[in-house]
Structures are given as C-alpha cells and as structure tokens.
Write a protein that binds this DNA or RNA. Sequence first.
DNA 1: CGAGCGCTTGATTGAGTTCAAAAATCGTGG
DNA 2: CCACGATTTTTGAACTCAATCAAGCGCTCG
Lengths: 188, 188
Amino acid sequence: MYLKENMGMTATEIARLLPRLHKKSVSKNTFLLRQGDQCPNAFFVESGLLRSYTIDDTGKDHIIQFAPENWFISDRSSAYFHEPSLVFIEAIEDSMVIVLDQYYNDFIREIPSYKEKNEMLLQNHIRHLQNRINALLGATAEARYLDFIRLYPSVSLRVPQWMIASYLGVTPESLSRVRKDLANRHYR
Amino acid sequence: MYLKENMGMTATEIARLLPRLHKKSVSKNTFLLRQGDQCPNAFFVESGLLRSYTIDDTGKDHIIQFAPENWFISDRSSAYFHEPSLVFIEAIEDSMVIVLDQYYNDFIREIPSYKEKNEMLLQNHIRHLQNRINALLGATAEARYLDFIRLYPSVSLRVPQWMIASYLGVTPESLSRVRKDLANRHYR
DNA sequence: CGAGCGCTTGATTGAGTTCAAAAATCGTGG
DNA sequence: CCACGATTTTTGAACTCAATCAAGCGCTCG
C-alpha cells in the first residue's frame, strides 16, 4: 500500500492504524465534500479520480486540483484552520478513497518522521501553486494547455475537455480552438 | 523584537541566537537575491520594503510578493529543495533585513514549538496562494485591484503603480484606466 | 430511440494589450 | 531652492486574444 511506503511508518504502526482507517467507495458524480462543510484532514485516493473545485459568485466553476490514484486531495485551509470549506470535492470516476480524519491526524503526529514528510508535502504544494500562478500571469491559453498535458498526461486522457478548460481558466470553446490550431500546425 | 514574540522562543534561546544572526542593510534598488542564486532559508524585514519577482521568457516581470516590515520574504522552493532560484529579491526602499541562513535554520529546528509555527506559516502561505489563483481565474482586473488595496492598503501607497500592475498581472496602462474608471464612478 | 451532454464551429463582443506620445511627478546636482 | 532629466502615469487609437452567444453534430446511456 502506498501510504505505507511513503509516510515512513513501521510495520507495527501500520498494523495499529489500519483497522481505524475509514475506507469509502464513492461512485462517479458524488461528493466527498461540499461548499460550507468542514473538511477533514484529507482524502487519499486508492483508485479512481477526483477533482476539487470552487464556484465563484458569477456561477462559473474553477477546478483547483485533479487527484488520480495515490494522490491526496483536500481543502487544506478548511482542515487546518477549521473553517467551512469553499470547495467541492467530487468523484469523476468510481473511486475508492481513504478518509484521513482526526484520528489519523492525531495518530501520525506521533510518528517521528511525520513532521518532515508533512513539511515536504506542504513545500511541494507551495511550489506547485507558485508555478500555476506564474503560468496564469504570463502564459497564453495554448502554453498553459501544453504544460498541462505534459505534466498530467494520464489525467488529460481521463477527464472531459471542459474540465481541463476549467482548470486552465479558459472556456471550453477556447480550449477546443486551441486544440484545433495545434492539430492544424502539426500537419504542415 | 518581532521574531521573539512570534516564533515562541524563550529568552535564553533568543540570547543564544541573536549574536549569530546576520543583519544586513540594503539600500533601494539593490538585490538580496538574483535569478540563478541559491536562496538562503529566508529574509526577515525589520524595516523598509522588498519585493520578489520573476522575469519570464518574453522579458515581462511578474511580482510575486511584497514584503513590508515584519514580513518574511524568500524563494521557498529554492531554499527547501536546494535549487537555483528563479526569482529576484530587491529592495524597493532602503531596508534593514535579517538573513535567516543555514545556522538559523539548524538552530530553530531544535526549538520545540518551531515545527508548529512553521507549519502554520506554510499553511498560511498556501491559503494565500490559493486565493491569488482564484482571483486570477475568476476576477477582472478591477476586482483584483480592489482586493489588493483592501488587503494591503499600506503597501499600495508605498509602491509605484506599475509594480501593483505587475503583481496583479496587468499592464500599467490598464491599471491606470481601471483607476480612472473607479474615480469617475465615485463622483456620480 | 431520443434527450442530454460534450465538443465543435461561426459570428460578435469586450477586456486588456500594444504602441506612441503627452502630462505629471520625482529626485538630484548645481 | 530651483531646474532639468528621468521615471511614472495618463491618454489615445488600433489591435488581439479569449469570452459570449448561438447553432449544429455525434455519442451514450437510461
């Protein structure tokens, strides 16, 4: 199991933790979290594919993150600061997730190597967000799209195109045209 | 001193740390960090005002962060992952900063309450970046500008307008027009 | 099998950019 | 303290990328 290898737990610790973990099967188009809910620590995706997104005041939705197998997905701000969440977390495919709740939280905080792992995850997250900001500030829709399929090739094949558009911050129509242009240019 | 109150150190710890801290006076328009350098842990601004920014491949610069008194400024990715930095850090005003170098790093990692403080800072940073992404995805230049002056009223008075434009991801001309519109609408 | 969803295409609109130049402000040396 | 040059801000006009509105196609899944 992925968590085992990557959180640096001992076999004993795993054995103690496992029976307390709450596994959840979520079918396509159902929600793990809604705007206004309080987000638990996080969800870990064993199989399937999830997304998190917000809906702004004009009704448009913006995808924050995709989470395929072995990814974590969460509203960190809501979980950490105990605030109601601003995001939805929804299954794009039938999925199996592990709910990392308060119990898990308290448990792993006792594990020596946890703090380092956690800091790594946070630092990584920050790097990722910063890259996305840079892209949004500087790059055209086309460049952002190419970046996306380079970084997440498997995700880009599994989600509908309008979701990629939402992640990139463009309309589905625009993304369709970007792709058309790219295809044309490839022929010549 | 701010660090004292906010990093949860004891008086003894402070006394031990203080003489080892490297204070640096930077005059306006000089750099603390350049693209390609390796970033030390962070800089703490005692007085003055700094900014960090990147220059993209088309030559345009994008301000990542302003740092007035009592703020930290850093390229976290460069510092944490020991990579050459992609950003510049430059003084906008004559400033006094404390260089939080490797020594500081090792020192505070021994302090019990450090890990929690650090996690808080990281979580906060993440929340901030996420908000900025949301704004870039959804809001108009005008809305982003109003957000900026609401969040950083003092900074908005101390920096030239073109820097605010750079932070918001618009041209100085556009920001000038946004402000003109706002002023006109206020009169009626 | 048909209703809905996702994708494409076209026409139009609009927010913001670019380029150019004038006006205002700042800062520095005499 | 003033004047001059440099920087910053404003304004104008043309342009561009992407958004919006609208219509049509194809697929699937209920």
